[in-house]
């Protein structure tokens, strides 16, 4: 069983949902990415999504676009990101998903990237612009290496799309909460319960919800029907703000992520008092 599936099983026992934290690797440096990842785990992140920076992040809002730019200016490459995974893995068993756009993976070589990722200790891939239709070759390699491919679903997804993703995904299914790019939003769409249910009928995989989540209140409300929440831009903004002061940065991240983690208990969900501002 993959590290990701093990983590979901473990959390189920504890009656908790998974907190997936996204950071862009190399923002502000790859060295600091190791410290940041370890800090996130210590503060309660269950899974780390490690963004591989790309020059043209078409599905990302301003926060992650700028993080990608900073990482590329800082010299981050896919090879460097894989080394970073290795460093994190020396000290931690936290599941790591490589998140990004297809071109850097394709250019690196699909067989090679899967082999190197597995050796480094990564657990899966989530490639935004690689729908199941185009993922055949990558999947051959990840299946062989025992790594997961997480696919996205969206509010626009039809039942046909849900079926196709269910057939091909492993680890978990990532439900994009909004029709839009990544980024925090004050108003969450909480009408995803129906869609989540439909996905559950198609697959036994856990369902994670992401895009636009930035507060414990939002996490708490989603814990009523999601198996995981993914928080990205809000964390990236903290890194943007405090990137040059390591101690302060880790402190801020710790405070923010433990707050989110505290809202990940299933028993918290739907208790009316909590969601109030």
């Amino acid at each position: 069983m993959s590290r990701i599936s093990e983590k979901f099983n473990e959390l189920k026992q504890k009656d908790r949902i998974a907190l997936v934290s996204y950071i862009t690797a190399g923002d502000p440096t790859l060295d600091l990415t190791v410290d940041i990842a370890l800090q996130l785990e210590e503060s309660g992140a269950d899974i780390i999504e490690l963004g591989v920076p790309f020059s043209d992040p078409m599905a990302d809002g301003p926060a992650i676009q700028l993080a990608s730019e900073r990482a590329l200016v800082g010299g981050a490459t896919l090879a460097g990101v894989l080394d970073t995974v290795k460093e994190i893995r020396k000290k931690s068993g936290v599941p790591i998903i490589l998140f990004g756009y297809y071109n850097p993976f394709f250019k690196y070589g699909l067989e090679r990237v899967v082999k190197d990722a597995a050796e480094a200790g990564a657990d899966g891939f989530l490639i935004v612009d690689l729908p199941p239709e185009e993922a055949g070759e990558l999947k051959t390699h990840t299946d062989k290496a025992g790594l997961d491919i997480v696919f996205l679903l969206a509010p626009t997804s039809t039942s046909e799309r849900i079926g196709l993703v269910a057939e091909n995904a492993s680890g978990f299914v990532y439900l994009v909460s909004v029709t839009g790019v990544t980024g925090e939003r004050p108003e969450m769409d909480y009408s995803l319960e129906g869609l989540t249910g439909e996905i559950r009928q198609a697959t036994g995989l856990p369902v994670g919800i992401g895009f636009g989540i930035s507060s414990p209140e939002q996490v708490s409300r989603l814990s009523g029907y999601a198996d995981a929440v993914i928080v990205g831009s809000a964390i990236v903004r903290i890194i943007e703000r405090y990137g040059s002061e390591k101690k302060k940065l880790l402190n801020e991240l710790s405070g923010f992520v433990s707050g989110l983690s505290a809202a990940c208990g299933r028993s918290n969900s739907a208790s009316p008092g909590r969601a109030k501002k």
């Binding site: 078409m58 690689l130 696919f151 679903l153 509010p155 626009t156 997804s157 799309r161 993703v165």
Partner: peptide, 20 residues
């Protein structure tokens, strides 16, 4: 039928756009 010209072309878009 899958939108390819030999090895080129295809549909490399995020899931939100696939239905469109």
């Amino acid at each position: 039928a899958s939108g390819h010209f030999g090895i080129f072309g295809g549909k490399y878009v995020s899931e939100t756009l696939m239905p469109a």
